[in-house]
């Protein structure tokens, strides 16, 4: 479904991605783990067209995204829950969700999806008319995920959804990610520092260090990998 081949990306002279190749098949949950500054966010931003690769190709279902405008990438079926959630603080919860469905014209289906996200995260329906900035961190993460789902994406990119959240909320959010994947067949590309949780929910994983992919395998294998254990699982 999504394939990055030998992608290189720079910020000025700093090379953030070095020959990154990642493949995501339809229906999968894959995770990309790595330390701070490894290049995970840059990888997702390049899929969304915010960071442009200097070389290499980003293919989404036979379409090269390298020069496609970000709004067209969303239209193609890719939604992005960015690092730090980026809720519009002065828009209400409802308005944040409306913007998730910005490109959609199928009003009736949008209403159905709104009900669906309120079922996933009932707290959001209580907070509906409150400015996004007044939500707690966990609620903001729920809103960010719901906002992305409102586009009815086929591929969902998530950048560290566990960041700064209490273990219980993290647990809940990861369960819901699994549920979204199972119920709707939404493909998920999950970036995480919380390697243990991520590998438990994902089918396959990639490990990134200093802008390069250094390891990839099935999650169950990675969970047992000595290198992964010592560097990312803290055991």
């Amino acid at each position: 479904m999504l394939e990055l081949s030998a992608v290189n990306a720079f910020y000025g002279r700093i090379q953030a991605l070095k020959d990154v190749s990642i493949r995501v098949s339809a229906g999968e949950i894959i995770t990309l783990i790595g330390a701070n500054g490894a290049g995970k966010t840059t990888t997702l931003m390049s899929v969304s067209g915010i960071v442009r690769p200097a070389s290499g190709a980003i293919m989404f279902e036979d379409r090269n995204l390298n020069e496609v405008e970000p709004d067209q990438i969303v239209a193609a079926g890719i939604s992005h829950v960015p690092e730090g959630r980026r809720i519009f603080p002065y828009l209400t919860v409802q308005e944040n969700l409306d913007l998730g469905a910005y490109l959609r014209r199928d009003r009736a289906a949008v209403r159905t999806d709104l009900e669906y996200v309120f079922e996933l995260f009932p707290i959001l329906s209580q907070r509906r008319h409150q400015p996004g900035g007044t939500l707690s961190g966990g609620e903001q993460q729920m809103l960010a995920i719901s906002r992305a789902l409102m586009a009815r994406p086929r591929l969902l990119l998530l950048d560290e959804p566990s960041l700064g959240l209490a273990p219980l909320i993290v647990q809940q959010i990861f369960e819901i990610l699994g549920q979204i994947n199972r119920e709707n067949g939404t493909t998920i590309f999950l970036v995480e520092q919380n390697a243990y949780m991520a590998l438990r929910v994902a089918h396959r994983g990639y490990v990134m260090e200093n802008g390069s992919i250094v390891l990839t395998d099935d999650s169950t294998v990675l969970l047992e990998n000595a290198q992964v254990k010592s560097a990312y699982l803290g055991v």
Binding site: G49, I50, D71, V74, P82, G100, Y102, R147
Partner: peptide, 23 residues
Amino acid sequence: TRIGKSMRAASQDKTMAMLLGVN
């Protein structure tokens, strides 16, 4: 309006607005 919401969104966070499909 939809246009109005996209204007407010872009004024608060342009990158995020782009990630939601706002031109």
